[in-house]
């Protein structure tokens, strides 16, 4: 009891979280449900942005629609909450119009890989200099838990009451095949690796993609007999880190384990760079003259 009291006296000073500068604190608490992992993924993203040491005003966060896409509304940087699936083309416009911006797309699996799938593959192909963080909670949480392009086969959702008859995307493979320069997957429990990975991606030119597995206890977990902590225990016990693993080998589980790690990291010229080189090689010289 005494230590409990001690704990209470400690919070007497006005509590100020280390990320409060990066948060719209006037909008806290956020809308995410108790036990939802988006907040942790979002926290890792903000920490990584801070850790880069790059000027805060250069960061822009763009989101689509969905639970994860509410992220943009809580980041205390210039932030754009756009339409469903269209965060990436919006971000592409921002980045091409002002290459000095460091553009982060923070959105969910439904937004980026179902309705926005086409934009994702094309941005990866063009190698647009974006950092795309995809919170994958296996379902459409905002609308109450419908099947997504990432829902595992046989999993129950409100629109697959008999279990999902379809197979999910292997999204790191999709990113890799489409031409992304950086591909990684973590869970929100691996928050430190996730943070480091996002930081690395932010500093890297070209299209970086990071998938974050994250619990949706209310809409997905409840229907699949997975409490929030159960999901975290899966992340703890049934994952294995294999940096450099080929994305084609990530489908489902490997030896019963979900494979995490940084799978792909290559240097290649970004969309902006290629445009300058190809479309106006003499522009700079001209301009100087």
């Amino acid at each position: 009891m005494e230590s409990a009291k001690k704990g209470k006296t400690q919070s007497k000073q006005p509590p100020r979280h280390p990320l409060d500068d990066w948060l719209r604190t006037d909008r806290m608490p956020h809308i995410w449900c108790p036990g939802c992992g988006i907040g942790t993924a979002f926290s890792a993203c903000l920490s990584a942005m801070a850790a880069t040491g790059l000027p805060k005003e250069n960061f822009v966060m763009v989101s689509g629609i969905g639970c994860s896409a509410r992220g943009a509304g809580y980041a205390n940087v210039d932030s754009y909450h756009t339409t469903h699936g269209r965060a990436i083309p919006f971000a592409t416009g921002l980045k091409l119009a002002n290459p000095d911006l460091n553009v982060v797309v923070f959105s969910g699996d439904g937004d980026l890989f179902a309705i926005g799938g086409n934009h994702f593959i094309h941005a990866a192909r063009r190698n647009v200099d974006l950092t795309v963080v995809c919170v994958n909670n296996y379902n459409y949480g905002m609308t109450g838990g419908q099947v997504a392009a990432t829902t595992p086969h046989l999993a129950k959702t409100t629109t697959t009451p008999r279990g999902n008859p379809e197979n999910p995307f292997n999204i790191p493979l999709l990113a890799f095949a489409a031409g992304a320069a950086y591909v990684a997957r973590w869970t929100m429990l691996h928050a430190r690796d996730l943070m480091d990975s996002i930081e690395e991606a932010l500093k890297k030119p070209g299209f970086s993609f990071i998938e974050v597995l994250s619990p949706c206890p209310i809409n997905y977990g409840r229907r699949n007999k997975e409490k929030a902590l159960d999901t975290l225990h899966i992340y703890q016990e049934q994952t294995i880190i294999k940096n450099g693993a080929h994305p084609a080998e990530l489908e489902g589980r490997q030896d019963g384990k979900i494979v995490l790690g940084k799978f792909w990291d290559v240097a290649k010229p970004s969309c902006n760079e290629l445009y300058e080189k190809t479309c106006r090689p003499d522009f700079g010289k001209d301009h100087a003259a």
Partner: peptide
């Protein structure tokens, strides 16, 4: 419960979805 036990690993901070 045990303030003296904190080793300042900050994991509570980074795992907390709520800041």
């Amino acid at each position: 419960l045990n303030p003296d036990g904190c080793v300042h690993c900050r994991y509570c901070e980074i795992i907390c979805p709520e800041f």
